[in-house]
């Protein structure tokens, strides 16, 4: 729905401003050469690393609503939540990817949820810190880093690696985030 999409963009933009004040987002966009196509990412932390999702795949960013556990679903499914009348599954990507949570940061009660619109479903992804919005030139993303070959086939949810100011951002392809095997696992 176009209206919701706009809202998502709005949220992202306000966050871009917050990001800029902390010295991140806007500097990047300033450096970008004219004419070069842009990649607009929503960036968040999982464990100690930065991850990014293309903004087209993010429908909305919201404070995590109350989640109802769903017994007998995989651990990375935190449960279901009511987001504007839609009941969607909420997923913990740290558990999904087996990422050690960053223990250096005190766990806060307030978390954020990115509502991802994948091809066939919407799903919520919980993150600990406010996600940031980031523009970068497409050329800054390495689509075929050599290490990807070392990763098992079913882990091909990584679309590429972006390098920005010594920061490494792992760009995820959310369309591939739930493999068919895992959907099957859900049904068992």
């Amino acid at each position: 729905m176009p209206t919701k999409k706009d809202k998502a963009l709005e949220t992202a933009l306000t966050q871009e401003e917050t990001a800029a004040s902390s010295g991140n987002g806007k500097e990047e966009s300033a450096k970008i050469k004219v004419n070069e196509p842009l990649l607009h990412l929503i960036v968040f932390k999982l464990g100690a690393e930065y991850y990014g999702i293309k903004i087209e795949q993010v429908k909305e960013v919201t404070v995590t609503p109350s989640i109802t556990r769903m017994p007998r679903t995989p651990d990375f499914i935190k449960g279901v939540a009511n987001i504007r009348g839609d009941i969607i599954a909420i997923m913990n990507l740290e558990e999904r990817f087996g990422i050690r949570p960053d223990t250096s940061v005190a766990a806060s009660d307030l978390t954020y949820t990115l509502v991802i619109e994948a091809k066939e479903y919407s799903i919520g992804v919980v993150v600990r810190e406010v996600p940031q919005s980031l523009n970068l030139a497409v050329s800054k993303m390495d689509k075929t880093p050599s290490f990807l070959q070392d990763i098992a086939v079913q882990e091909n949810y990584i679309e590429g690696i972006a390098k920005v100011d010594n920061r490494l951002i792992i760009v995820l392809d959310m369309f591939k985030i739930l493999s068919s095997d895992e959907i099957k696992q859900l049904s068992n």
């Binding site: 769903m70 009941i87 049904s187």
Partner: peptide
């Protein structure tokens, strides 16, 4: 339940209670 949760057989769906809580 919407995808991908519709594959979970144990639940026929959800309903929202007057309190706004999700009920399985």
């Amino acid at each position: 339940l919407s995808k991908p949760l519709d594959a979970v057989e144990l639940y026929g769906g959800v309903t929202l209670l007057g309190s706004g809580k999700v009920c399985l």
